[in-house]
Design a protein around this nucleic acid. Sequence first.
DNA 1: CGAAAATTTGACATGACTCAACTGGAGTGG
DNA 2: CCACTCCAGTTGAGTCATGTCAAATTTTCG
Lengths: 189, 189
Amino acid sequence: MKQQLSNYLNRYVSFTETEVDLFYTYLTVKTFKKKEHLLKDGQHCREKFFITEGLVRSYKIDSKGQEKIAHFGIENWWITNMESFVIDKPSLFYIQALEPTTVLAISKSKLEMAFEKIPKLERLFRIITENMFVAIERKNELYMKYSSKDRYYNLVDHIPDFAQRVPQYMIASYLDISPEYLSEIRKNK
Amino acid sequence: MKQQLSNYLNRYVSFTETEVDLFYTYLTVKTFKKKEHLLKDGQHCREKFFITEGLVRSYKIDSKGQEKIAHFGIENWWITNMESFVIDKPSLFYIQALEPTTVLAISKSKLEMAFEKIPKLERLFRIITENMFVAIERKNELYMKYSSKDRYYNLVDHIPDFAQRVPQYMIASYLDISPEYLSEIRKNK
DNA sequence: CGAAAATTTGACATGACTCAACTGGAGTGG
DNA sequence: CCACTCCAGTTGAGTCATGTCAAATTTTCG
């Protein structure tokens, strides 16, 4: 698992083994069963989670009581509720494991400490955040400019894996399509 | 202008006057007339712009030849095409001044140099990017869960200023509403 | 003042939603 | 291992929000 983290870190900034080891001491391994929650709404999200294995979703319950999925997270992604983490306010979102999941968790305070000890981390997290920003912006564009059908097939084409691992109604929620209409879309392929 | 920058920087991380002065040497003041472009599509976006005065938009032309506005930028905001800047590929977006605009521009290479000289900047830009991430995520949510009408009044309530400074059809584009329908919405207030 | 741009209006079209009912498969427990 | 339940997915009918197109009107600005 440390090796996996090391590979990931070195994709962006090169770290010595000592630095990786040190960073690793700030992290906590946590495992979650299917359907278990990493975060519940109303809680403060005080950690970032690096997913080493499994699949999670972050979602909220809207005013009509319906689940709205904002993100999925898979292996080698960070997941957190950024708003709650950054601004230090209660989360409006849940984060839940959809498969048995293992993460490396780091709290905000530990992360600050790690930044002090290993300044390069500051750079790493800047870069990661930039990449996340680009990703979310692309998603944004997808929503604003494409029909339901296009959004669905865009997803399926880019991450065919997903359609296997995630139930259809969750994909519908993520893409902001009603489950019935997604069914319709698939029929008329 | 240096003072304005200094105030901005110190909102997030505290810098000495010397550090601000040093950072300032990496920046270039640029001014743009109304309708002038800071960036055109097809160009590589190699700079970040800190707006000290004025108003800009970033937009693309979609497959039907229509303008789609992705962001606005006002005083004390950074604007760039993050995707083009980070991944170093041609931009799909234009950035254009909607009012006479003054920016402090910094190129990618100069920014890298500045990071070396003033490590705290690395932290600053991480924090800025996190904040931008939170902002874009909120916008995302707005699109996914609210009607055209709600999106419009959400904007008007939050940034009443905007509705004054920006023509209505641009607000429509930004909110992903047809100009005609936005007109309809306003009529039936 | 006049031309060009922005906004409004109205008629019509349609993508996508809601609701309710039905189908089929996957677990679960006795 | 069968019977039952429950949940995901599908279907169909009816509706609504929002888009498109074309024309009329108003505003802006050189």
